[in-house]
Design a protein around this nucleic acid. Structure first.
Lengths: 212, 212
DNA sequence: TAGATTGTTAATCGATTAACAATC
DNA sequence: TAGATTGTTAATCGATTAACAATC
């Protein structure tokens, strides 16, 4: 066994931690120095015990009666979610969504740095989007391997998703952030996270049906 | 009690149904007419009993030995997720992301029709994005109410999220699809669905840390 | 000290998985 | 008919919630 085994964090916890971070940033801007689990819980309409259990995972201890040091907690969450570790990524697809993603400066905060974009439109190859060069997708495998790229952001139409995912996988990519509204197949060990805009929208529409 | 009470669908089911739909569309394109829960489950690396349980919610019955009629199932999911019911929506924020969302023709498939955009940049007011007029955000409450708009899509920077959400709420909106990387406060009864791009990215990065 | 909040242990809840009879 | 698949009931698992002692 040569890889370090880390106890996997429950998925719900992992999805809540970024929310805590958002709340903490808001509180910090208001000058708050120490924050209790109750405060965070109230902001998000969650249970305070749940918040404390989640915080346990990031290895931060609080002080009875006072709560958690807000700076310490913010940094610990950032470290835990790996935001302090800037990862270089390839963007595949430079259509509307790809263009928006390339221009989204915030990603740097979350440790993602898009260093190249790929598009099979010959008119786009050789140009740049938001200062990022647009290259031929056929170059993905070779470039990804030589540059040790670990994340690919997939923002192509559904029909083109699998073939471009395959190019990324061929290049030794470890994780794919999939914005295409389709399921892609990847070998075991490759992490595929679906951004799932349409699932999110469906969820909203169904909730509205159930309530009104 | 004057509102129809519908048994709420478990959230995990609601998040999986759009995935089933994607798989079914792919299978249908390959000419498949009848599909078993096992087939769907294998495509998504899920359990077939779970798939059957989820399908129960959409009120479709299958045939032992054969499975489910693919067209019937696709339509039932679309109906259940309310995709067949085109809802008009306002888009707030016409920056990079807003621009991409306005141009994302696929949303119509999922029953969302963006009919107006709002931006507080005076240079943008009066122009159009992808054929959609850009208006002054101050007009949101009045217009939303008069046009009976039920969904607001929030694609503004974090700092501007709450104030624009408030305008939508003032206009009687029922649901907010929030793309801003911040939590917004809304009164009870208003559904807020966070698109949570950053949460999705964090999730991917953490998974990579845990595996490698 | 008194009281608010943490951290932990136990109880509950709900979703997933297993087992299996019904059915085409 | 035999066998694959559904639909259902029961068992398991894991996450949430409740209870409470420890602590500053």
């Amino acid at each position: 066994m040569n890889t370090v085994q880390i106890k996997p964090t429950p998925e719900p916890t992992l999805r809540r931690l970024p929310l805590y971070h958002q709340v903490l940033i808001q509180l910090k801007e208001r000058g708050v120095k120490e924050v209790s689990s109750t405060t965070i819980a109230n902001e998000l309409k969650l249970d305070s015990v749940q918040v404390r259990k989640d915080i346990e995972h990031v290895q931060i201890v609080g002080k009875p009666r006072i709560g958690f040091n807000i700076d310490e907690l913010i940094l610990a969450i950032e470290k835990y979610l790996n935001w302090d570790n800037l990862t270089e990524a390839f963007l595949v697809g430079s259509g509307h969504l790809g263009f928006a993603l390339a221009g989204y400066k915030n990603f740097a905060k979350y440790g993602l740095n898009i260093i190249a974009a790929f598009d099979n439109d010959p008119e786009k190859i050789g140009t740049t989007v938001h200062g990022i060069p647009v290259l031929d997708p056929l170059k993905i495998p070779d470039l990804a391997r030589r540059m040790h790229i670990h994340i690919g952001v997939l923002a192509v139409p559904a029909e083109a998703a699998q073939e471009n995912a395959d190019l990324l996988i061929e290049g030794g990519i470890k994780g794919i952030w999939n914005f295409a509204p389709t399921q892609i197949k990847a070998p075991f060990g490759i992490v595929v996270e679906n951004a799932q805009l349409t699932a999110s929208l469906s969820f909203l529409k169904r909730k509205l049906t159930e309530q009104h």
